[in-house]
Design a protein around this nucleic acid. Structure first.
Length: 741
DNA sequence: GTTATACTTTGGGCA
DNA sequence: AAAGTATAAC
């Protein structure tokens, strides 16, 4: 046990060995948070204070849960099996499956991911002939999720205006639809579980009695409902003399980056107040990053207001300067990154210790292309994730229909895929009938007469045959059989671009085999036919698949900043540091949004151990359009002495920007997309040496970027994005424009 | 009525 | 760029 506590600093030691009371650990980036959490669990168990079955540990990502389990089994001589470790959603799924009857759900309920949910809402709007211009599906989705996260069922929502009243009605209909189809969305997983525990005393008491220590990772990212869920589980029960559980919450308000999905940083303060937390421990010593990187992170986050306050420090030296690179275009940026990566590898770095981070998934393509051309192995996390690909979703839809024929979302997805002559019209008729009979689409088919009825009946027979033929098959063979009999394989075989999709379908079989292998221990306990299938489907929804190529290979890591939270790398490249991209344009206008972007930047910077590379491009292809962005304000927030600018090779004829040094930032400017598609650049002599993408200054409007140019001679004019001052067309002969360095 | 094709619109991060 | 929508062709 003394081994366990060796090498912990004073604060870490204190946190790990706290008496059984509520505790809040404010853990800065790289301060050994995961270590404290796992060591705490190991210490509780090995000191005999708690049985493994008394531990409940909640994380936010499956990755984090897995890592915690791995570390624990390395630390403890005993099995980790009795512990409950998982994500909120994963644990709720487990509870609901175990108590499905009490929760009012069939055992084989399905889980909708956000895309499924959106599709279900669109279908709902269609059935009720709702104008989707007035009620945009995405907005309605957000509304419904927000209500659920506030713990509100339709009856409890207060609606003061007609618009909201209508949305509440649609919320109610959505619930009915989900219940009828036996599907549950992410927010519902949480709310259902919460209600189950709240209303069902025996069940609640059972878990309250069982869990003695509840440990929460990334507490700053919990939403209101998750917090209430924790409160309920941790509460004692005076009547039966059950003492409450100890809540051990670890978080960092500066790393709260999930406000968009309802995370409530205020939970940290509420927790401290409501539980009268006497033990608040700050972990401020950083073991990860060199001084320059840490100073940069501290300087950036200082621009935010209302922080709980923390200052990271390190015993390590300043280390290397932060390298900053300005590229002309996104592909130049990618090329430069690849060259630097190659250099690092030549110097002996492991590829897997190098991460390429970006704000949004769309940015990964250019990087992937450059890496691929250079023959560097890489691995992309997130993005179009495995279980979200269309061919996989189609295959899963067939599997879902086998497990649960009432799943209308799955039905609608594949009833005419591959095409079998069931178009929009037939489907509409079926939906109409389904409403009158109040049955699922599948169950309605026998009621339908006429030609469409025949074709539909054939589809139903196909599903029924599948269900019968696969009942005794092992999961991978079941999937294989479905791929063939559904015609999916044949369809993609015939398609020109279908090869990759076919490979992915084969991957699905592999994923099924993998799933069986991993859950083998539990498999014997499942009695019902296709129960393992239902488990696999839940797995597919909850864990959309870290399923990139060769697992074991030493590969460069590509991911969004969100996905990088909790991870660390020797070298980190953060690309696309441009206004509109990072900070993202949708977040720029609201103060709250901007602060969240800044926290995201803080997270990104603190991922790096030794080297940090920051880059941006003057022009970038995004959504099929070339955009010209100003550099990110976050770059300006890093003190100059910490950085070293790297000069890009100068293309012929262009005025240099950012040459060799640090230049005065265009304060307060923000970018926007060009009002008109950029015109072809006129001959250079007409623009007086100016170029699209260049930074210029104007006496009245200040600094801006040229986003388009047209005309020639006396008519030559350029369109300039002046940020705050707006976008203007200026005649070159009239306006005095100064190239800006 | 269904399917193939041209055109228009949209657009973030995640369990 | 990809998904969604209107229109023409089967």
């Amino acid at each position: 046990m003394s081994d366990l506590l060796a090498n912990l600093n004073t604060e870490q030691h204190q946190a790990v060995t706290l008496p059984p009371q509520h505790a809040l650990i404010l853990a800065g980036a790289g301060s050994g948070k995961t270590r404290v959490l796992t060591t705490r669990i190991a210490w509780l168990i090995s000191s005999g204070q708690c049985d493994p079955a008394g531990i409940l540990a909640v994380t936010f990502t499956n990755k984090a849960a897995k890592e915690m389990l791995a570390r624990l089994s390395a630390m403890l001589p005993i099995s980790t099996r009795g512990m409950w470790i998982g994500t909120f959603h994963g644990l709720c799924n487990r509870l609901l499956r175990a108590h499905h009857r009490d929760a009012g759900l069939p055992q084989l309920f399905q889980i909708l991911d956000s895309a499924d949910q959106l599709a279900a809402i669109k279908r709902l709007l269609k059935t009720f002939n709702v104008d989707d211009e007035k009620f945009p599906p995405r907005e309605l989705q957000h509304f419904i999720n927000a209500q659920k996260e506030a713990g509100l069922r339709p009856d409890a929502v207060e609606a003061w205006d007609d618009y909201t009243r209508r949305r509440v009605e649609l919320y109610r209909e959505y619930e009915t639809q989900c219940q009828r189809e036996s599907v549950v969305d992410f927010a519902e997983l949480l709310l259902r579980t919460y209600e189950l525990l709240e209303r069902n005393e025996p069940v609640r008491r059972h878990y309250q009695r069982r869990f003695r220590h509840i440990l929460v990772d990334e507490f700053q990212d919990t939403n209101r409902l998750q917090y209430r869920w924790l409160k309920l589980l941790a509460a004692g029960d005076a009547a039966s003399g059950t003492p409450g559980a100890c809540l051990f919450c670890v978080g960092d308000d500066d790393q709260s980056i999930y406000r968009f999905r309802g995370a409530e940083v205020g939970n940290m303060r509420d927790f401290e107040r409501e539980f009268q937390v006497a033990n608040v421990i700050r972990l401020e010593q950083n073991y990860r990053s060199h001084g320059n990187i840490l100073d940069a992170a501290n300087a950036i986050i200082r621009h935010n207001s209302g922080r709980l306050g923390k200052n990271l420090w390190t015993e390590q030296g300043a280390g290397e300067p932060i390298r900053v690179f300005e590229a002309f275009g996104d592909s130049d940026e990618a090329r430069w990154i690849v060259e630097e990566v190659q250099q690092l590898v030549r110097e002996g770095a492991l590829r897997s210790d190098i991460a390429l981070l970006y704000r949004s998934n769309a940015q990964s393509r250019v990087l992937e292309h450059a890496l691929f051309s250079a023959g560097i192995p890489y691995r992309v996390y997130g993005g179009l994730r495995f279980f979200e690909r269309q061919e996989i979703k189609h295959a899963l839809a067939y599997l879902r229909l086998i497990a649960n024929a009432d799943d209308d979302t799955a039905f609608a997805r594949v009833v005419n895929f591959p095409t079998r002559g069931i178009g929009a019209r037939s489907l509409e008729a079926l939906q109409e009938a389904a409403r009158t009979y109040n049955t699922s689409l599948y169950a309605t088919v026998p009621h339908l007469a006429g030609k469409p009825g025949t074709v539909l009946a054939q589809f139903v027979r196909l599903i029924e045959d599948l269900r019968r033929d696969t009942a005794r098959l092992p999961l991978p063979e079941l999937v294989d059989h479905v791929l063939d009999s559904s015609g999916l394989r044949a369809h993609y075989k015939a398609e020109k671009e279908g090869r990759e999709r076919l490979e992915n379908l084969d991957e699905l079989i592999a994923a099924a085999a993998n799933f069986v292998a991993e859950s083998q221990a539990d498999a014997g306990a499942l009695g019902a036919d296709h129960a393992l299938l239902a488990d696999f489907l839940a797995h597919a929804s909850l864990e959309a698949g870290e399923h990139q190529a060769d697992q074991g290979m030493d590969a460069v890591q590509l991911m969004t900043v969100h996905a990088a939270k909790g991870l660390e790398f020797d070298a980190v490249f953060l690309s696309g540091l441009e206004e509109g991209l990072f900070p993202h344009e949708n977040a720029i206008l609201e103060a709250e949004g901007l602060e969240e972007e800044r926290r995201l930047m803080y997270v990104a910077v603190t991922r790096a151990r030794q080297r940090l590379y920051l880059s941006f491009a003057q022009s970038r292809m995004l959504h099929g359009q070339t955009r010209y962005n100003l550099r990110s304000r976050f770059l300006e927030e890093i003190p100059e002495p910490l950085t070293r600018w790297i000069t890009p090779p100068k293309p012929r004829g262009s005025a240099a920007t950012g040459f060799g040094g640090y230049y005065e930032p265009p304060r307060g400017a923000f970018s926007s997309r060009p009002a008109a598609p950029p015109a072809p650049v006129p001959p250079r002599k007409n623009t007086g040496g100016l170029q699209v993408g260049q930074l210029v200054s104007h006496a009245r409007f200040g600094k801006g970027v040229i986003i388009a140019a047209e005309g020639s001679g006396a008519d030559a004019r350029v369109q300039i994005n002046f940020g705050d001052a707006g976008i203007k067309w200026l005649l070159l002969g009239v306006a005095k424009l100064e190239p800006c360095n």
